[in-house]
Amino acid sequence: MLQVRIHGRGGQGVVSAAEMLSVSAFLEGKHAQAVPSFGSERMGAPVVAFCRIDDKEIRLREPVLEPNALIVQDPTLFQAIDVFNGLPDDGYLLINTGRDIAELGIEKAVARLPEGHVCAVPATEIAMKYVKRPLPNAVLLGALSAITGVIKIESVEEAIKSKFPGKIGEANIAAARAAYESTSTKS
């Protein structure tokens, strides 16, 4: 079972990201589950959402405690909460940042992760270019598809379309595709 935990701040589309990721897997005929964190979240507060993907039926109904992949939509969260909690040594880490890992001050924390499992994507910049709004969620799903291969980029596009039909969806699809392509060529 692949378990993904998505960290971000209220308003960044964290819950929608988990939802779109799970829909992508559902569209591929896999078993999936999207779980938001349970609370009365507000704009700017740390928010977390979870997604499980498996070939078998998923029995668990609880937040993800040991994620195989972490998506961090806001790098300032590293100073605020223990983002890496429960991440195993072979986990994936995807960060929305235009800076180097060293600049974020998490070099030590990520040293244990295998090569190619840590990926920095300037998702907000890509979103500003295509969507004209600082919403990194769909962009990061494109990058997740590229580094883990767990879902196809076509499924991600389909899921974005079902969540956001029309122009907004199209812009997000273009942004996700751009992130997918630039991440694929990097690794």
């Binding site: 939802e19 799970s22 078993h31 999936a32 589950q33 999207a34 779980v35 349970f38 109904r61 609880e62």
Partner: peptide
Amino acid sequence: FFVTHTKDT
């Protein structure tokens, strides 16, 4: 939440 807010098949 475990049921109401979780997306499931």
